[in-house]
Design a protein around this nucleic acid. Structure first.
Lengths: 252, 252
DNA sequence: AGGTTCAAACAGAAAATATGTTTGCTATGT
DNA sequence: ACATAGCAAACATATTTTCTGTTTGAACCT
């Protein structure tokens, strides 16, 4: 499908320019205005940009987290590499809780054919896991946040509080030795905290960029974590600092 | 797609004969054996029949409930008619719990564009409701039963016990004035009971055939119900009996 | 061993989807 | 109110994907 390339091109162009007209986008993509309009309608539906009469504008503001659909296709190979590494760390028969987010979704996919008990914290991961024959799927309650489909709220916390997992696989928006594990969303942070509290072992997945970032909501100090799986590009200083706090860091 | 007709033809033929060879099926459908094999693989995956070397056999036994995928395409118009009628009975702003099952799935679809708070008791309904902009979606916890994707177990019961809905929309396997509301699955029955207990008003959806059937597990006596939506074919005697127990019966 | 059943690979057919053009409608600004 | 740009629907065409049947060689059962 060539359309997916064009979609990416449109998103990038709009993001770079802040906003662009339909005419301008039609020229840049070498297609008709009608096609651009159809694309914009589609992309706006997914929350990837915002439509206005005559064009579209970027939805990326300030320090906010980009929407799920945007992150989903970003750096897939890296996420899959991290996910494969995490899958190696899980033994058959374990009970695992998997956080929301795109990296954790990759982990869920990597675990789908394993013999495990899994509680996913987002409906995306749920959809990746239903139908897996060997897997015992446990759903938490909660309210799915639009787009992200991360389950949050008191029902989710209650579900987690009632269970004890062998391993929690947690995603994050930021992780440093000094500032700990942080998230953009307060409700998400509360869930991550509950998931960590319900698990014997905590594995954090974090692309390298997150190891030099701190988000608004503190989830837990770094010392509460047992392992971090990241990539080669992770800054040595941060890795060393985490290591000195007793966190095993794995770079893949 | 013509293949869906052929699938139905294959399912019916296998069900009628108990079991049939690939060669026989290829002849009956007027296609090649390879196509039949591919179909059988597909259908077996959905649990619609069972594959064995050389052919396939029916998976329908005794008084058991046919698998979800089989019921899903059965009598859609009737289910949609019932669903539309139920949708009329729900006022905007209500909090509604929707049971699992194919008829209830139709109700979920009919309510997707409404301004409501909805807790679906199956992941099929969840998928029909995510992304609905006006709707507040609440997920119960629980373990999704394969195929059906009905959420059951203590997590589901706990989720229901924590909430009070305006209306519960309940499906069933059997409903008579004498034997009450019944279900095939014990775990399902427990959930239905919890849903009924958590709601102020209980609406049961039931195709006519269910009004002359009784399944294994008792959910509730008919007197616990407020309304039943069924079709014209519902037997008059049963309708009258239900009515005399204070249940409003609507035939659409 | 010997026949049958099956899965993979490929090519052609059929269907679904994507695209561009035209046309008439709608919204926006003056 | 009017003019204009933007838009949506309808349709025809092009492209892609999916479906199907045949062939071939491997797997299976007796």
């Amino acid at each position: 499908m060539a359309s997916v390339d064009r979609h990416r091109q449109i998103i990038d162009a709009v993001r770079r320019a802040g906003q662009l007209s339909v005419v301008e986008l039609a020229e840049r993509t070498g297609t008709s205005e009608m096609t651009v309009r159809r694309d914009l309608e589609l992309l706006a539906e997914q929350g990837l940009l915002e439509r206005y009469r005559g064009g579209a504008k970027s939805v990326l503001l300030r320090g906010e987290e980009p929407p799920f659909a945007l992150r989903a296709t970003d750096g897939i190979e890296v996420k899959e590499r991290i996910a494969a590494s995490v899958a190696e760390m899980i033994a058959d028969g374990e009970a695992v809780v998997i956080d929301a987010g795109t990296t954790c979704l990759a982990v869920a996919r990597a675990l789908a054919r394993r013999r495990l008990t899994v509680m996913p914290l987002s409906l995306h991961a749920t959809n990746a896991l239903v139908g897996a024959p060997q897997l015992r799927l446990l759903m938490p309650g909660g309210e799915p946040r639009p787009g992200e489909l991360a389950l949050t709220g008191p029902l989710t916390e209650a579900s987690l509080a009632a269970l004890r997992f062998d391993t929690a696989i947690i995603g994050c928006c930021g992780l440093t030795a000094a500032n700990g594990l942080t998230a953009y969303d307060l409700a998400d942070a509360a869930i991550k905290r509950a998931a960590i509290a319900s698990a014997h072992r905590v594995i954090v997945v974090a692309e390298a960029a997150k190891l030099s970032r701190t988000a608004l909501a503190l989830v837990a100090p770094a010392s509460a974590l047992h392992a971090v799986v990241t990539t080669d590009e992770a800054p040595d200083a941060e890795v060393a600092a985490l290591h000195s706090l007793g966190v095993a860091v794995r770079r893949v």
